[in-house]
C-alpha cells in the first residue's frame, strides 16, 4: 500500500543580522534545503517570545527552529543571551508537558555560515520527518 509521504511544516525564525543572511548565502551558493522550511525574519532572536513558538505549532507547524547570532555576536550586544535562557526554559517546559523535545531547536548561524544553515535545516527537517506530524500541540480547528 502506498502511503502518502509526510511532508512536515517547519517554521524557522531567523535573526535579520545573521541567519537570515545565512539563508541568503545558502541560496546564492545553490545549497539545497527543503522547501518545507518557512522562514520568518525577526530583528533579533530575542524578538521571538514564547507565544510565537506556540502559535506556530497552533497554526500547523510540525517543528519550530529559532536561529540567531552566535553568543557574543548579537547585533544588539546581548539579545541572544536572553533568547538562550528563555528558550532553555520554554523547551524544557514543553517537554515537561510531554511535547516531543525534538520538535523545537535553537541554532546559532552567522551570516557567513550558508553551509551551516542549509545543513541545519536539512537535519531538522529530517528529524521532524522521522518524528511525524505534530499531534500534541495541534489546534484541530486549524486542521479542518
Amino acid at each position: 500500500m502506498q502511503m502518502t509521504e509526510f511532508k512536515p511544516k517547519i517554521v524557522a525564525f531567523c535573526c535579520n543580522w545573521c541567519s537570515y543572511a545565512g539563508a541568503d548565502l545558502a541560496g546564492n551558493n545553490r545549497l539545497n534545503y527543503p522547501a518545507e522550511v518557512k522562514i520568518i525574519r525577526v530583528p533579533c532572536s530575542c524578538r521571538v517570545n514564547p507565544m510565537f513558538i506556540l502559535r506556530a505549532f497552533q497554526r500547523g507547524a510540525d517543528g519550530v527552529i529559532l536561529c540567531g547570532c552566535h553568543p557574543g555576536d548579537c547585533h544588539y550586544t546581548s539579545g541572544n543571551y536572553y533568547t538562550r535562557r528563555r528558550m532553555a526554559l520554554l523547551f524544557s517546559m514543553l517537554n515537561f508537558l510531554g511535547i516531543e523535545k525534538e520538535r523545537t531547536r535553537v541554532e546559532w548561524v552567522s551570516a557567513a555560515e550558508g553551509a551551516k544553515f542549509a545543513a541545519t535545516m536539512n537535519d531538522f527537517v529530517a528529524q521532524i520527518t522521522a518524528l511525524g506530524e505534530n499531534k500534541r500541540l495541534e489546534d484541530l480547528r486549524c486542521k479542518k
Binding site: 500547523g60 480547528r141 486549524c142 486542521k143 479542518k144
Partner: peptide
Amino acid sequence: DFKTNKGVQ
C-alpha cells in the same frame, strides 16, 4: 471569530 487556516469559525 476564530480564523482557521481555511476560513473563519
